[in-house]
Design a protein around this nucleic acid. Structure first.
Lengths: 201, 201
DNA sequence: CCAGATATGTAGTGTTCACTACAGATGTGG
DNA sequence: CCACATCTGTAGTGAACACTACATATCTGG
């Protein structure tokens, strides 16, 4: 028994293209025709490889979060809670206005509200956003234990806050805000974390 | 010449129902069938009254922002910039988790990313969000003039920041965050405005 | 009561959608 | 070189979509 004809396209390269289409048009706004054209393949290849449209989205999200997690690890490696917040929000200002990608964040642009039959898509995005929030929360818990954050501070609330600001920045970016505008937001936002930090020497 | 058969439904009541459908499913996710059923009318009545699907959305947005502006006027009537931010964000935590409405904010849920042919929808939403931001900015400019905000503060940046946080809270609400979680975010967020305020006596 | 005007309900219209049947191409194991 | 397995391209499939033609109903002005 043979092993069949080998695939003629690279799955990860194709996923990068699909990611961009979902990013720009959202899950429901992206059509199979747009996706296959961007991926350089025909529909049967897409379905053989990813199952269906939703499977393709999940694969694209997996790839997106995988790349993003590498960056998040650098973010939480910052020495203080304040620096974590600054590195995260300033980095997001950069990333979400990087002309190499569509503006905003795939985990928001992908689909906040969807029609009947795609109810699972917003949940899928939310679940992946909460991964980042959990990582931030753990980092802030450590910061509190290290005396970097005030004893009265709430690490979970701070993580939720930073996460909310990043999401808001993503929406702003997608609707045309430039890098400077996002940096201003980040700069103000960091001051709330600073207010929960112990004074520097 | 006669004046024709009178309309048998109330346009504003019907709009409220349409608003809820757009709010829950987004512009692209909402179907004419869902809209007409919720509005209690048939497609020809919808098209005679609102032109097309996009016209209906704009009418729903008009109604939404009209109601919202009444509330925004109360918000900016708060005595200080800090109180404006608190009243706004705490109010949003309430509104976006009010079980009488779908979670989140129509100006976000309506459609952040759309497919080919509906590119104007995200712009329409963004334009209406920026109205709120402008109102906040004007209020913060006044606060700075009144010495309520520090001379070094940037009212436009503060307004952008508060606006970004509210958008982020809207996304959180739509993906299941409860009122308490949003209030925590609001509470932290206000501290950044506080940091730009002159000390209280 | 009639003519003009507008609204309504039924029943579609063409188009686009996600998805697939099928035949031919290209590989592996014997 | 042959049986088998998997991929690829063409060309569709039925379903759902936004939107509408048309006959009928209900109003006003004369």
């Amino acid at each position: 028994m043979g092993m069949g004809r080998p695939r003629e396209f690279d799955a990860e390269t194709a996923l990068d293209q699909a990611m961009e289409v979902f990013w720009r048009h959202g899950y429901e706004g992206a059509t199979i025709a747009q996706l296959t054209e961007a991926m350089g393949i025909n529909p049967p290849s897409l379905y053989a490889c990813f199952g269906n449209k939703e499977g393709l989205l999940k694969a694209a999200l997996d790839r997106y979060t995988k790349l993003r997690n590498v960056w998040m690890d650098e973010v939480v490696a910052a020495p203080t809670a304040r620096d974590v917040a600054e590195r995260m929000l300033m980095g997001i200002a950069d990333k979400q206005t990087d002309p190499a990608n569509p503006p905003g964040c795939l985990l928001v642009q992908g689909g906040i509200a969807c029609g009947t039959g795609s109810e699972s898509v917003p949940f899928e995005l939310a679940a992946r956003r909460s991964q980042n929030e959990d990582q931030l929360r753990d980092r802030f818990i450590r910061a509190k234990a290290e005396g970097d954050l005030k004893p009265t501070s709430d690490p979970a609330a701070l993580a939720r806050y930073v996460s909310a600001v990043s999401v808001g920045m993503g929406v702003m970016a997608s609707s045309g805000s430039d890098r400077e505008a996002l940096q201003q937001v980040a700069s103000v936002a960091v001051q709330a974390v600073e207010a929960q930090s112990t004074a520097r020497t």
